[in-house]
Design a protein around this nucleic acid. Structure first.
Length: 376
RNA sequence: GUGGUUUUAGCUCAGUAGGUUAGAGCGUCUGAUUGUGGUUCAGAAGGUCGUGGGUUCGAGCCCCAUAUUCCACC
């Protein structure tokens, strides 16, 4: 994987570039739809590519390992062949599940013992094993095994957690370097900055990650409940330490406004469940603000879902019809809303990219963030 | 016709020995959701307890009448 930085904004830290992978190019900044179990929930792969215009999607090590399992993925020839997505894929390492499934795991120096959320069976995840699994899944970009530090957390816990993540990172790199890709295309390993919201820890972690010389670098442990201004502050601080000539990935973020603020601080890659999860529950994001489709006020609003939207669903369906689908519990509702939201997120990062290139990003961003958080 | 039974929130039902502002689940209406457990969580609105009398300091609960649901018998 290679990265070429092509434009740098003068009024902010925003940048535009291109990531080159064996499955094609990724123009940045980019939003990556989440496809935890090998599918972007509720959206056909053709629509993810052609209508949403996604350039790369995510998968999750923990979920794919449990189901369908490594034997099937290997026999299929990797995730790309299994799910029919021929563009780049990034897999999260399962580090987030260390955090989100905290009640079902035990942490040790060696790794983490998980209890499956599917059948309760126990599984050991170590840095080495997580590298091996991600080799089998075959993502273009794979993530180091980390602990996503919870928030709030005491300084000592944050320090020890960060140090553990660093030791695990060294083991990830060692294992990654002594193994090879299985399907004939390159894979890149991204390390992850932790350190909670302690400045000295974040700086230390960012320096550690920067020293690895990885193809790209990620920031984890943010957007876990801390004040939004804190998230921006730490994003900016870490970006200033991470190498300029490598892509920076802010994990798990976020709302449309969060993404523009992240871009302006030097982030190139984002992923978030929000467009799909909230979409499945009737919330859609537009350039004029947020719509809760379940609200009674849309009952007889026959105007297009989003008159400014580029997805075909935006003009094909009305708000009243979509509200009806949600109220009736019809599965087409979540499908349409997910597709709209993803198309909107991709439009947002594409528009940001254009503005960075033509020099109007900072001004545009400050106008947009006000509109994006409005409730319609 | 006789005996028994049912009636409490939009729906399905709890309401203990008569005792302050009658509860739940679902539904409805609002919020929340940030490296996804097709969710989950939080809050709100909504009832003259079938109707009319009576007993009592006090009745959803006891008594009478009446309507109503279902059952059995003639």
């Amino acid at each position: 994987m290679d990265f070429r930085l092509t434009h740098t904004d003068t009024a902010s830290n925003a940048r535009a570039g291109v990531i080159f992978t064996d499955h094609g190019e990724i123009a940045t900044p980019v939003f990556m739809p989440v496809g935890t179990v090998g599918t972007v929930k509720a959206v056909h792969i053709r629509d993810v590519a052609e209508d949403v215009k996604a350039r790369i999607i995510l998968g999750n090590t923990y979920h794919l390992y449990l189901r369908p399992g490594l034997d099937i993925l290997k026999e299929a020839g990797g995730l790309h062949k299994f799910n029919g997505w021929s563009k780049p894929i990034l897999t999260d390492s399962g580090g987030y599940q260390v955090y989100s499934l905290a009640h079902r795991r035990k942490m040790k120096e060696e790794g983490v013992v998980f209890q499956s959320h599917i059948d309760g069976s126990r599984h050991m995840f170590s840095p080495e094993k997580v590298m091996d699994i991600q080799r089998v899944i075959g993502a273009d970009i794979i993530m180091a095994f980390d602990e996503c530090t919870p928030y709030p957390c005491e300084y000592e816990y944050a320090r020890k957690s960060m140090e553990l993540t660093h030791r695990w990172l060294d083991r990830c790199i060692a294992r990654f370097d002594e193994t090879e890709n299985l399907y004939g295309y390159r894979q890149s390993l991204f390390p992850i900055v932790q350190g909670s919201i302690y400045r000295d820890l974040r700086i230390k972690s960012a320096e550690k990650i920067a020293s690895c010389g990885a193809d790209g670098n990620a920031i984890g442990g943010l957007a876990v409940g801390e004040p939004i201004e804190t998230m921006y502050e730490f994003t900016e601080m870490v970006c200033n330490i991470l190498p300029k000539d490598k892509p920076r990935y802010l994990m798990g973020v976020g709302t449309p406004a969060n993404i523009l603020e992240g871009i302006s601080r030097g982030i190139d890659m984002f992923d978030c469940v929000m467009p799909t999860r909230n979409g499945r529950n009737g919330m859609i994001f537009t350039s004029n603000g947020i719509i809760n489709l379940k609200n009674e006020k849309w009952k007889a609003d026959f105007s297009p879902l989003d008159p400014d939207g580029l997805s075909f669903v935006d003009s094909a369906y009305s708000r009243a019809y979509l509200r009806h689908l949600f109220v009736a519990g019809e599965m087409l509702g979540p499908m349409i809303a997910s597709q709209h939201n993803l198309a909107f997120y991709l439009w947002l990062v594409d528009e940001a990219r254009k503005r960075i290139i033509d020099g109007s990003f900072a001004e545009w961003k400050s106008q947009m963030v006000v509109k994006l958080v409005q409730r319609i």
